[in-house]
Design a protein around this nucleic acid. Structure first.
Lengths: 195, 195
DNA sequence: ATGGTAAAAATAACGCCGTTATGTTACTGT
DNA sequence: ACAGTAACATAACGGCGTTATTTTTACCAT
């Protein structure tokens, strides 16, 4: 295992165990058994490590969407990927906060990291295509994908917030998937409408 | 104008002009023409100042919802408050990122600040009540309020993200309000269903 | 095997950050 | 006039991301 991989592993573990705020250059390098300078030899500083974790996070999201591509019923497939999405947001809260964090300590993803985000979105657009008639324009599919993503992300984000603590997790999950289902069915029905 | 007010004004301006990352204790106190220690005399450090700005941000949201209470048609009132919400999120991006930021530099709101968040949510629950039949349970109203908030916040949050740059602002606003309208009408129609 | 060279490592420092210990000023009530 | 208190400044502490300098390591041609 190369030192570069050690650093990435240490960073990923820290993110999972102690959250985004614990991700300091010193903490990462200490856990990897190296000095801080290693992060500047193998990556472009902290930014470089965060870029890797960012891409890692969006790969999780992308897989959540793609893993249901074998299902026959488009609506059922969409619901299953919605459930996967919630599971990933729950079990990888650190990654999720990194990729959707509004302030992340001044972090803005690099071009490559942003490309990973767009790939995940593209996977969702492809998935949504199956809910719409074949002749649907790309703009229409994009809007449908954004709508579904906004619903899922909106619920996840509120859940991480003070307001989200009104309900326990199970109730929250049921409510989220129900709202998601309504939107999916609405999209699947609206063959001739704008969204 | 007291020194305490000077500090708050300086912090609010900095948040509006340069964003959350520029909100350092030194920057705030320098703009207020004071030394850093003033922030520890009048507030409980940076946390105290952020708590005030946090409450300020949720007061904006609360007013956005309440300002339409005089309208007659419940559906139209809901749509108007949705539009207000988007306007506020656009014009006060710093405040918005503070109150919904996932990582805010380790900031977690105090109990009083969290109370301001709950007040804003309560205003939304009251507003949603008008869309539902009188005998609706509190749980049902809460779920409807969360659903509408999740939609608005989901779109706003994606807009602040790399993914949101697919569309220009006007298109994005239209799309968001259209999705919001569909949800409002669905809630207004679903008099006997669970949400 | 040996010497030279380049990569990779550590040490120590710089300038930020939030915070605080210490000291100084200005005002209040007696 | 004097004590007490509140508000202020100066200077420092430890932690952060980063980098200049130095040392070690590894490899390759002779």
């Amino acid at each position: 295992m190369s030192n570069k991989d050690k650093i990435l592993a240490a960073a990923s573990e820290l993110l999972l165990e102690k959250g985004l705020d614990a991700l300091s250059v010193r903490a990462i390098s200490q856990r990897a058994g190296l000095s801080t300078i290693a992060i500047y030899s193998h990556f472009q500083g902290k930014q470089g490590v965060l870029d890797e974790l960012y891409a890692e996070g969006f790969a999780l999201v992308r897989n959540a969407v793609l893993s249901v591509s074998s299902m026959d019923d488009p609506v059922e497939a969409a619901l299953a990927s919605g459930k996967n999405y919630l599971d990933i947001a729950l079990h990888n809260e650190g990654h999720y906060r990194l990729i959707f964090g509004e302030t992340g300590g001044g972090y803005t993803p690099s071009d490559e990291a942003a490309a990973a985000a767009r790939e995940a979105f593209e996977a969702l657009v492809m998935s949504v295509t199956r809910l719409l008639p074949d002749e649907s324009s790309r703009a229409l599919r994009q809007r449908a994908a954004l709508r579904l993503w906004a619903i899922l992300h909106g619920y996840v984000s509120l859940r991480h917030h003070v307001i989200g603590t009104v309900l326990d997790y199970r109730q929250w999950q049921d409510m989220t998937l129900e709202a998601f289902r309504l939107a999916v069915e609405q999209i699947n029905r609206s063959e001739h409408h704008e969204l």
